[in-house]
């Protein structure tokens, strides 16, 4: 990564939840910095990968305590932003795509209206112009008959189509960073790859940054430029996607080896042995790699 000014820098991010049995530290001292690249955040359930994405956008419930020494986006300190300024940043500067489009779209309004609204909130534009922009955007996510899809309600579209619509809606205000939280996990493999290809093209064309949060290590390593591997709320390591298979971290190695392979044997799969040693914060290592 040769860029001088990173798009997003996060330092010492932690998220703490209260619980009847004491406080739970769900994200602990997470630091990374990224440019206009595709960065993957991989981890198992409970690793804090989704919370990290949401904490950046301040989308966590009020009882969660979020702390960080620094969250800088395009030179602006997000920690000092008011809620009103954050609302402007969300959507216009940083967008988020969630796993299930069914819950993210308003069921009683047509998808076209919703995409158009996403555009007019952030841009001053006439109705006709906004509509044209919406249709262009639908075309950009490779929907063949945008005029027809414009008038459909969310329940009338398939899962893959719904996720393309979500991507269209999130990209129409032209943000410079997209956070995609398991955007394709609910889809069939072929559809999943087709949606990712669209995402890949759009992010590339517009020179955006992409944070791709997923549990699927194989997919992330083939799709992203760099991979952040999280476990137990901490970053285990940050590696270039191409070098993932050469990784020395026992957790990464464990994750890779426990996947069944088509050309493998039918013997026992190696299981992952978790080690609490990984969780001891080692200052320097995590930060050093993230800043590279």
């Amino acid at each position: 990564m040769t860029e001088n000014t990173p798009l997003l820098t996060v330092n010492d991010l932690s998220v703490v939840f209260p619980s009847p049995k004491g406080e739970v530290c769900a994200v602990n001292n997470v630091s990374f910095s990224m440019g206009r690249e595709k960065i993957g955040v991989v981890g198992e359930s409970g690793s804090g990968k989704s919370l990290t994405g949401r904490a950046v956008l301040r989308l966590l419930p009020p009882y969660a305590r979020v702390g960080a020494s620094d969250i800088t986006f395009k030179g602006r300190n997000l920690l000092s932003c008011s809620e009103k300024q954050m609302r402007k940043i969300r959507g216009m500067e940083i967008s988020m795509v969630m796993q299930d489009p069914k819950y993210s779209l308003n069921p009683v309004r047509t998808v076209g209206e919703q995409i158009r609204e996403a555009y007019t909130i952030h841009h001053k534009a006439g109705k006709k112009q906004a509509r044209q922009k919406t249709l262009d955007m639908l075309k950009a996510v490779r929907i063949r008959n945008p005029e027809q899809v414009y008038g459909l309600y969310p329940h009338e579209v398939s899962g893959g189509m719904g996720q393309r619509i979500m991507i269209a809606m999130m990209l129409i205000p032209e943000p410079s960073l997209l956070i995609a939280d398991e955007p394709t996990s609910a889809l069939d493999v072929t559809v999943q790859l087709q949606v990712l290809a669209i995402l890949d093209d759009l992010v590339g064309e517009r020179g955006m940054g992409l944070i791709f949060i997923s549990h699927d290590l194989a997919l992330v390593s083939s799709f992203c430029d760099r991979v952040i591997i999280m476990y137990g709320g901490q970053i285990m390591e940050v590696v270039d996607a191409g070098n993932l298979h050469k990784s020395n971290h026992p957790y990464t190695k464990g994750l890779l080896s426990c996947l069944p392979k088509i050309d493998g044997t039918q013997d026992h799969l190696p299981t992952l042995v978790r080690d609490d040693v990984w969780l001891k914060p080692v200052p320097g290592r995590v930060n050093g790699e993230a800043a590279s």
Partner: peptide, 14 residues
């Protein structure tokens, strides 16, 4: 299930 848990359950089933 997570992949590491998947491996354990597949081993058990076999």
């Amino acid at each position: 299930l997570d992949v590491s848990i998947q491996a354990e359950v597949l081993n058990l089933l076999q």
